[in-house]
Design a binder for these strands. Structure first.
Lengths: 199, 199
DNA sequence: TAGATTGTTAATCGATTAACAATC
DNA sequence: TAGATTGTTAATCGATTAACAATC
């Protein structure tokens, strides 16, 4: 499931080069997986769009994928923390394919509040709860220092957020029905350091 | 294995609060995993340091973990891309526990080159290869736009890098003996969006 | 001893891969 | 038909969890 977006990306890239049909080998390579895994994933989707002997009709496959990802339904998210990390995330823009809308950026620092980032004015954290409940925001991205993370999450969940993407080093505690995904730079690095030392 | 750093973090935090012995329940909770999983992981390490009935001697456990992670051997890494993302990563500092040394930051933009980030002067990309081979850098963090990522990786691998941490949206191709870990903001968001739409 | 907690074995689960039959 | 390529079944693998015996 987590590979679907990269499949979609591979398809878009091929379509923009004028390719309309491609075998799993090509598609899988562009998405960084094995051809078998690609085919397995696609077949699990149900509405098959491959043709034995030639490959996949990219337009049909794209339709299937977008359907599976539910990309027509737009989802709103906000970023808390307008420092370097928050700014980088807000500016990345590649979240736009995929039906995602960034509708708010928050910070507590007077230096950040009022600044414009990615076309949005940075608001103070105290407005976070209201914004979440009034706009129906369900995803909150945490780009704050670890000390502030849990407090922000508690406010966000209280206001109705149900998915948290955590870029701080903090371990977050949330109710059962809230999903948390965490990205920890230090942990990722240490995994690689392990590999480096083993050699 | 990827959970070890967070166990270490939990231990350090408890030790600094004056706690010397703790049961798996407490430690696991702080690390965000189940007590069973914690015990399983620790027991897999070999040199056991838990006492039935009371819990783990934190100092001993810390020793075991640091040993397993090989934290005494310092590993050098560089960051390519000194934009918001690269700057955020360089400033995160929480990689320092763990024996990791940031020894270089690179960019192609004249506006970035010469600027100081996290105590280091930003160098031009063209110096990347030399720096990697002369300092024995094995980990390269990619914080460039996706278009530049593969080119940078090719240079880095050519110069001797063996681990890549990729924050760009590009799918990277490397030789068999090079390890790549990728963090894609858009993909993470889409996973959460999936969850949001399902509700 | 009784209570708490570890360490381990076996069961479960899910994801990946191998092998191959189906078919364009 | 022959070659290429998909779709599926079964085997494999690894990681997680449940259950419980060991023991402080």
């Amino acid at each position: 499931m987590e590979r679907l977006p990269s499949y979609l990306h591979a398809i878009d890239s091929l379509l923009s080069h004028g390719v309309n049909v491609a075998p799993s080998k090509i598609l899988a390579d562009r998405a960084g997986v094995s051809p078998v895994q690609f085919r397995k994933d696609i077949s699990l989707l149900g509405g098959l769009s491959g043709t034995r002997g030639s490959g996949y009709d990219l337009a049909a496959l794209r339709f299937e994928l977008r359907n599976a990802l539910g990309s027509e339904v737009r989802v709103r998210f906000v970023i808390v923390g307008a420092g370097n990390l928050g700014t980088a995330l807000a500016s990345s823009e590649n979240f736009q394919r995929g039906g995602l809308d960034l509708v708010g950026i928050f910070d507590v620092s007077p230096q950040q509040v009022g600044r414009r980032v990615a076309g949005l004015e940075v608001l103070h954290d105290r407005e976070l709860g209201l914004k979440i409940s009034s706009l129906g925001v369900s995803i909150v991205v945490i780009a704050t220092p670890p000390e502030a993370a849990q407090i922000v999450v508690d406010q966000a969940v209280e206001a109705g957020a149900r998915e948290i993407l955590n870029f701080s080093a903090a371990v977050l505690h949330v109710p059962q029905d809230v999903e948390v995904r965490s990205v920890d730079f230090a942990v990722e690095l240490q995994m690689l350091a392990l590999h480096a030392r083993r050699v």
